[in-house]
Design a binder for these strands. Structure first.
Lengths: 188, 188
DNA sequence: CGTGTAGTGTTTAGCTTCGAACTTTAGGTT
DNA sequence: AACCTAAAGTTCGAAGCTAAACACTACACG
């Protein structure tokens, strides 16, 4: 079971506050926009914390975070919960090689099955087992409690605003490609 | 040079839109709050995209994302840019073992120096070299262009709002510990 | 029909990380 | 002083990932 970085990052002793960190960056790099940096730093820190929380939860269920990602992708594909290793790899941002090994493990643990596609014998079909689906559901229940709790201090309106602003950033990143200088340029 | 997941996740062929993804989750898991899920999913996707962008930029400079993280921590500590391996490991969320190896590489590449602390011979001091500082600065310049561009579509007011909302989430995660059920409970 | 070519998944070798055992030093206790 | 305990880093073996080479199947084209 990988991804046990849980308790190392959890406490985060002596880590500077966001404000302190931004002030330090400004000392070292004058033309930094503190407003931009605040958003970016908060995003990155938040994500680290969230991953730690998820790792802890999945570990409690006896699966790794990596395995949870696979389960999520399969469930998202809808019944009958089948996908090829290649597509899974693309979705999760892994090499096909890594996917092969990950599926090996998950087959051994009974979370998925792997069989050749008889109508096209190059392809392989990875299918969620009932056990795998149960694990996904259990992880989902834990995750949703955590997520609800994370947003607890925000009003419904604030949640909406946050969702919209983040979606706009996401759209900008997903519908654009960086040019040579790293700038994002629209595709269409 | 690790962290070359750049071009695999960049295109993200066939990935469902955020809305589609949330709709799919709701079909499989009824008591899911779509508002919460939207925020969380957007956060997680955004971070993946940003990491891909950073990886590409650091690769262009001939360093890995991992090395950039070390450089950032050292610069943040302020002049004379010295830290012990243990503290670095804690900041970056790594085991001391991993830190040892990472420093090995960075010493070999001339980014940092490693020496024993003569006043306390158990300790080791990792110090940024001028070359390391230059690499940090170059990476920082690239990153700030990308970040400014990422937020391009948001007005100054929207940036402020986003920063504040994210900070509140961060505070909730950083000042709390999860209880047995995964809920976040205040410390003070 | 055979052959070339593209697409899929697996295998192999090397690297990075983790967990755990180990070494060295500092500092307190008797 | 001699010992015990804690703290800091390193070493060791196992796990997981990447890139690149490889094997197999399907399909188009002569």
């Amino acid at each position: 079971m990988a991804d046990n970085s849980a308790d190392r990052t959890a406490a985060a002793l002596g880590e500077p506050t966001l404000e302190e960190q931004i002030a330090a960056y400004q000392r070292e790099f004058q033309d930094l926009d503190p407003q931009v940096e605040k958003v970016v730093s908060a995003l990155s820190r938040l994500n680290r914390r969230m991953n730690v929380a998820y790792s802890r939860q999945t570990a409690d269920l006896g699966i790794s975070n990596a395995e949870w990602e696979v389960l999520k992708a399969l469930v998202l594909s809808g019944a009958p919960y089948r996908m090829g290793p290649g597509e899974l790899a693309k979705r999760l941002g892994l090499t096909p090689a890594a996917m092969t090994h990950r599926i090996d493990r998950m087959v051994a643990e009974g979370l998925v099955t792997r069989e050749r596609d008889e109508s096209n014998r190059v392809r392989v079909i990875v299918e969620l087992t009932p056990v795998g689906r149960e694990k996904w559901l259990a992880a989902m229940r834990l995750a949703s409690v955590f997520e609800e709790d994370l947003l607890q201090d925000l009003s419904s309106e604030e949640r909406h605003t946050l969702g919209e602003l983040l979606t706009r950033l996401l759209i900008r990143v997903e519908h654009a490609q960086p040019d040579a200088g790293g700038r994002l340029t629209d595709l269409d």
